[in-house]
Every structure is written in structure tokens, then in C-alpha cells.
Amino acid sequence: MKNKPIKIFIVEDNDVFALTLKADIENYFDNLLLNIQLFKTGEESWEKFRTEKPHVVILDYNLNSKISDASDGSEVLVWFKRENPEVKVILLTSEDSTDIAIQSFRNGAFDYVVKNEAQFKKIHISLFNVFNLVRLENETSTYKNIVIGIVLSLAVLLGGMAAIRFVPMLLGN
């Protein structure tokens, strides 16, 4: 987490909003190493999503306002979660709809932010929670690796000690 950048994809067809959001996140979390990439549609982001495995995706719900045949955010969310269940997806919507919220959480969204005056502050809170979760997951993974290492070392040590007991027998004493 300290040395590797946190990868964030912003999938949003409004360039002004996407650029502002990127600048806002970089400014607000300036103590973190971030790698933020922008995409206009889910289709455009798909190859990079598969190869780069971002930690977080900020995904607009209405992705077809300019490119009419683009898949909407709810479909793209399903692709992303199917490809990488670990990815944290924050869905952005323009309307405060309970149905969309429930559907999003059912499909694995980490959070759901309505675009309004407080949108950037809400995204900060959501990202703050994501970053804490990613850090905890990384720490858990590190401790898990340490425990596995200790267990393996003990096994080698004990196995070695057991083998030493047979050395005299093998030497015919």
C-alpha cells in the first residue's frame, strides 16, 4: 500500500465532471500514491480493467448520454464484479432512487453516491472507507503470509530434526 499506487478507474462520459473528480481526489488525498485513469464507457475500460486490476472503480450509472449504444453503469458493474469480485465499485447516479440503490448493492457495489452539491464530499468519505478496507485486506494478507512462513519453517525444522535421528542408523551405528 505504501509503495504501490492505489489504482482508481473513473468511468464517466462527462469529461468536465471526470476531470474535476480526478483533480479533486488527487488534491484531497495528496498524501497517498494514486494512479487514476479515466474512461468514457465501460467498453473502453474493459481491457485495462482486466489487465491492470484496479482497486477502486468510480462508475457513472448513466453512461449512454453521449454514446447511445454504451452499456449503462448497472451492466458494467456486473461485468466488473464477475471479473474481479474484490474490486470496490462506487456507483454515481443523478437520481436518488431506492430501486437503483438496492439493485446496485445486490450487484456488489461498495457504495452509491448521488450527484448533487455534496457529491465530492460523499465520494471522499466513500474512498476513505475503501482505502481503509484495502489497507486492512493487505495487512491481513501480509499476516497470513507470515503465519504460513512460520508454519513451513517449523515443519522443515521438525522434519530435519526427525531425519537427524535416523542418521546414525543409516551410518550403521
Binding site: D15, L19, A23, N27
Partner: peptide, 20 residues
């Protein structure tokens, strides 16, 4: 305020707005 006064970022966003 959002972009912390960073001039290059502001210019980029203004350009994007004009194109949009």
C-alpha cells in the same frame, strides 16, 4: 477550491468545458 488552485488542472477542465 476543488482542485486546490492548481492552474494546469483548472485550465484542462475549462478547455474540456468549452469543447463539451
Amino acid at each position: 477550491e476543488i482542485v486546490g488552485g492548481k492552474k494546469a488542472m483548472i485550465k484542462g477542465i475549462l478547455d474540456a468545458f468549452l469543447i463539451q
